[in-house]
């Protein structure tokens, strides 16, 4: 029906407007004031999540508006004052079939891009770099097994120690540094309780579970600094263990690796990582 497809297009347009409005207000890699939509994407996976989310938003908005319109008609046309004699209709088999079949079709239409997105996220491409993140109470430890396996702690910077421009509760002392446009394989585990590693701009989230090595991957296509926060309740300072990934050029990354090897070899991590699990990702 032409009216229906126009309505859907309008809904999709409104959705795109809302999310892009949110995105234009969003500081890259971190949330911005009054943000309503997802953070800006810097990976192909997040691009896919964003477009699938817009698609879902259009469908869900259409459904909610449809129900609202029906209720409005009922309130206006079938209230007892204007419609005092109730009908006795309790069945309408064609209608019942329709309102079973149409939702099934809508769900099938959702399922196709949904499964595609799922497999893109979970099929790890051949990695250019592997890093390991360990969630601890209450900081993240990162190691670089490809580069001599140096390890360092990444701890939140207290409010009073922030420099101007550094976002509160998101800034850390030692950031994760990765090269741009490279497939990074992230191995994640937990040292004590369950934590969760996420970077919204990358579209990744994976739990850090003791006794288990989980993994995710990303390919950042823009240089910059990207923030996330621990996403599984892990004790008193759950709010205070952010994740910061700085994406730099390959040359700058190599320089940083050289410096890091020296810096982090000299400083042993505050809490040595103790894991009692296999080193291969669990499935």
């Amino acid at each position: 029906m032409k009216a229906f497809s126009r309505l859907t297009a309008m809904a999709a347009g409104a959705a795109a407007l809302l999310t892009s409005a949110g995105a234009s207000l969003a500081g890259l890699g971190q949330p911005s004031d009054w943000q309503m939509g997802l953070q800006d994407s810097v990976t192909p996976v997040m691009d896919d999540i964003t477009s699938f989310n817009t698609f879902l938003f259009a469908i869900t908005t259409a459904i909610a508006v449809f129900v609202l319109v029906l209720l409005a008609i009922i309130i206006l046309r079938f209230n007892a004052r204007v419609h005092p004699v109730p009908s006795r209709t309790t069945h309408n088999t064609p209608l019942e079939i329709l309102w079973t079949i149409i939702p099934v079709i809508i769900l099938a239409v959702i399922a196709v891009p949904s499964f595609r997105l799922l497999f893109i996220q979970l099929d790890v491409p051949k990695p250019d770099l592997t890093i390991k993140a360990t969630g601890k109470q209450w900081l993240w430890s990162y190691s670089y097994p490809d580069n001599g396996n140096f390890e360092f702690d990444s701890t939140v910077v207290a409010d009073k120690d922030l420099k101007p421009g550094q976002p509160r509760l998101l800034t850390v002392d030692n950031e994760v540094v990765v090269p741009v446009n490279k497939v990074v394989h992230v191995l994640v585990t937990g040292a004590d309780v369950i934590h969760s590693f996420t970077v919204p701009s990358f579209g990744i989230r994976i739990d850090a579970i003791p006794g288990r090595v989980n993994d995710t991957w990303f390919k950042a296509t823009r240089e910059g600094t990207y923030y996330g926060q621990c996403s599984e309740l892990c004790g008193v300072d759950h709010s205070f263990m952010p994740i910061v990934v700085r994406v730099v050029s390959e040359a700058e990354f190599n320089t940083w690796v050289g410096q890091a090897k020296q810096k982090y070899a000299a400083e042993a991590p505050a809490q040595p990582t103790a894991i009692a699990a296999a080193s291969a990702p669990s499935r």
């Binding site: 997040m46 999540i49 699938f52 989310n53 879902l56 938003f57 869900t60 949904s114 579209g203 989230r205």
Partner: peptide, 11 residues
């Protein structure tokens, strides 16, 4: 229904 889709629940 949005959250049921693991791909977007990821986020």
């Amino acid at each position: 229904v949005v959250l049921a889709n693991a791909g977007v629940d990821r986020e």
